[in-house]
Design a protein around this nucleic acid. Structure first.
Lengths: 253, 253
DNA sequence: CGACCCGTGAAAATCCTGTGAACGCAGGCG
DNA sequence: CGCCTGCGTTCACAGGATTTTCACGGGTCG
């Protein structure tokens, strides 16, 4: 929570703790980046402590962290202000002399929506030769681990979860990295490449990730394997380099 | 909305319509089943009109339609009641003498969360032999992809969405490209041609896009197929070139 | 008939993605 | 405490795919 009203802060902290939450408090604007690092569920702000920067800060939060639950709790406000805030992306607006229990309940209500859809994980998922195991934070092919890093795994899990759907870069970034993608960021592409490398290394006869030009990527296991190795069985290919290897299928379900 | 306060209902209906929503109103409890059939986005309830069944009805809604946005808007209420409601699964609780614009904004805020989590605009659309699938950024005929590029798809989606309506070039450009069309720009025409090509290639016996001279284009699937091939079965037409082929129907305004 | 509008094909300009590598950072280890 | 390694981020380049632009000619309208 971002507020300086010590009485409110104290009592809310107590209730939050009683509810089993972990609460962090600040007395002024906190850069969205730091908020990301805190892995927050929701944030409660009294824009009064932000001064003139109030609106721009709230706007920034909504823009860069659309997944974060955002509740404003402040003193006098007009209908126009509340409407503006809600339209901006704020999830709830509470008038300040407010019962802490209600604040807790409202934050809970917001978070409920957020959580409900994402808690579908922990289900082991199979696609082609691939097996994605959230419990082990790893993916396997024939029992052998792909040795994915954290980000790689999260990306793969996201893609594999939205089976068949095309996911746009921004959406991918948003959901894996947790905040809005900066214009021109190529991180997603780079990780897609790493994933494709590892997938191809362990399951060469399948293609999993497909590119949709100008849109994003789509996960869909296809047995479209490259079967030219057996044409020249005596080839002394000591070099495991796959060189310009298989072209990645471009948009053609 | 479930409410009987005619003044509130009237003004809210007006605002909702202005916001482009479709609103249905009832004066008492509606079975969840019927609500499902209405394909609602959110529901606004004043439990006062439900009498003693209020809480049980709300509870039932939360249990059976957890995906539905649920907002309570009623008169006097205690903190305990609001907390109970919010914990139950209600998304927002508004005190009743309330500005309709705020009610709209709050419902919007709730729906925003709901929608962004689930697949946005996953409504697949069928027209003639054509199937437009927003989730795949692609259109299909008989399961085969038309292989549209992003712009082509967006254009087709726009046209197909405004079923039967004639769209002017500037309007099309504005909505697909996102900014105003420069004078003399022929991009729309070019993309219409590309679309017609691909449509005709995969679904030759239908005509989808019609030209309105001096106005714009209109999407309307018609089985007006060109059936002259069978008139000369022995024709050695080795040249698949459609050359000056089928003229595109031009409707008179 | 003449001005304007639209379909068409192809060249030119632009944008997008795959890729390799450098960079910075943090934890693990000697 | 300093080195090393693994990981994530950023950059620049190249090859394509896509979009835009252009010029022509056939159609349409008044």
């Amino acid at each position: 929570m971002i507020d300086t009203d010590s009485g409110f802060v104290t009592v809310l902290a107590k209730r939050a703790e009683a509810a089993g939450w972990q609460l962090r408090q600040a007395g002024g604007a906190v850069p969205p980046q730091e908020l990301v690092a805190m892995k927050l569920n929701a944030i409660l702000v009294d824009p009064a402590v932000l001064g003139d920067e109030g609106w721009s800060y709230l706007e920034r939060l909504c823009r860069e962290l659309p997944d974060l639950g955002l509740v404003v709790c402040t003193g006098r406000s007009t209908v126009a202000q509340r409407v503006r805030g809600l339209r901006l992306g704020i999830d709830d607006w509470i008038a300040k002399p407010c019962h802490p229990e209600e604040a807790i309940a409202r934050i809970e209500a917001i978070s409920r929506r957020r959580r409900s859809r994402s808690e579908l994980e922990a289900e082991s998922l199979v696609a082609g030769e691939l097996e994605v195991r959230p419990d082990k934070f790893q993916a396997f092919v024939g029992g052998r681990s792909l040795d994915l890093t954290r980000r790689e795994f999260e990306l793969l899990q996201l893609l594999a979860g939205a089976k068949g759907q095309v996911l746009e870069r921004e959406a991918i970034y948003q959901r894996v990295w947790g905040y809005a993608m900066a214009h021109g960021d190529r991180s997603v592409d780079v990780f897609i490449r790493k994933l494709r490398q590892k997938l191809d290394k362990h399951s060469p006869s399948w293609s999993y990730i497909h590119t949709h030009f100008g849109v994003g990527y789509r996960f869909d296991p296809e047995p479209a394997g490259i079967v030219e190795e057996e044409l020249r069985p005596a080839e002394p290919e000591a070099e495991p380099k796959r060189s310009s290897g298989a072209k990645h299928a471009v948009a053609a379900p």
